[in-house]
Design a protein around this nucleic acid. Sequence first.
DNA 1: GTTCATTTTTAGGAACGGCTAAATATTATT
DNA 2: AATAATATTTAGCCGTTCCTAAAAATGAAC
Lengths: 223, 223
Amino acid sequence: MISVSEQDYIKAIYRLEQLSGHANTSALAGELNVTAASVSGMLKKLSRARLISHRHYRGVNLTEKGKDFALAVLRRHRIIELFLVEILGMGWDVVHKEAEILEHAVSEDVLTRMDRMLGFPKRDPHGSPIPSSDLYLAPQATVRLDEIKAGSSGVIAEITDDNADLLQHLAGLRMVPGTRIRVCRISPVDGTLTIKCGKVEINVSPKVASAVRVSIHKRNNKS
Amino acid sequence: MISVSEQDYIKAIYRLEQLSGHANTSALAGELNVTAASVSGMLKKLSRARLISHRHYRGVNLTEKGKDFALAVLRRHRIIELFLVEILGMGWDVVHKEAEILEHAVSEDVLTRMDRMLGFPKRDPHGSPIPSSDLYLAPQATVRLDEIKAGSSGVIAEITDDNADLLQHLAGLRMVPGTRIRVCRISPVDGTLTIKCGKVEINVSPKVASAVRVSIHKRNNKS
DNA sequence: GTTCATTTTTAGGAACGGCTAAATATTATT
DNA sequence: AATAATATTTAGCCGTTCCTAAAAATGAAC
């Protein structure tokens, strides 16, 4: 059986791979708040278990087996987050930490029951897609809000950040998955985006905007 | 903070104290499936933390602080069990193992929400009382079914065993909390009890009967 | 009061997942 | 290409919680 730490590493590697194609030791150390030496030791263990392929000094990539583990953990995490919001009424800004713990404690049986109770949802409270029970995750056609050119409009698809303060801030601005927005202009000085969101215009820093992914096609992004 | 192992020890000590007034090393070793040496080491740690008082070679007892920890864990465990049965539709015979894990993962916030969603229940699916949020547990006035004399009748209050097979067996016989029963006769040979349960008469071994606690007063024991 | 059984302690180890410090490999700069 | 800066790995250690085996302490029975 794969340990809690190993799962956390696999999850972090998956996340970094999504962002930049591969994960290196120091990025993982930063992500997991451990030292690079600790990461190095764990990577050796994960390599031996054939969950990652490790090119020394070049970073790691998940194997197929590793990717499946990552998707399984992601599925657990996201179903649990949605359950906490929809069934237990928790705030979308606080469920991440909770799910981080519960994902290691909930059995497959309980997870299946949560999934059924939620109607086999496709997205978690932050708009992130939930892998199917056979661990398939449809490729996402979204762009980061800070990479859109002025004038474009679209629908907020996903918030890719777990920080509670940031999520609260976005919720206060109505910047939640499903909301239609339009980028009015982008400041040439500091990159601040002026966004039409509902009836109001708001300013969003590029740092915040980088956590927002937008679907530029005219789809309704609910559930 | 108290570790998962420490909580398991405290819980086991509480259970043994309820049964026989105190807990000794070898009984704990049996209960927790570890060696006596391991228990001895852990008792030293719990003693230092003032969670138990250890009279050498005489066994241990929980301090007030230790008892509060035990009741807190019991509360978590029982609320979670009830949640799994009532909200997620799991069988009462399988929720124990699940709750054993979840009780260490669920936050106070989530527990409170579960409690509220269940309507602040007083009893878990096995009829065991749930300590209140201020850790008060009303003394129970029930007797073990194998200690009742023939002719008495009462209502099943609680099943004090976690074994899934035993619980399934009892459920098949309709021997669940809330059911009114009458002890018709007790075999003088092997102690087998003949019980009127609903309209039918069933035979129950003394071993099974010892897991059933009965309220001999005429109360409805629901919730 | 001695002996026997039980309980507890001690000694020595293992796996795990962290850590620091030091060595080593890679990448970047000049 | 040499060197400096950065990234990674190795080596050695710590604390936790479990283990076995053996020694020592205690309580109980005779």
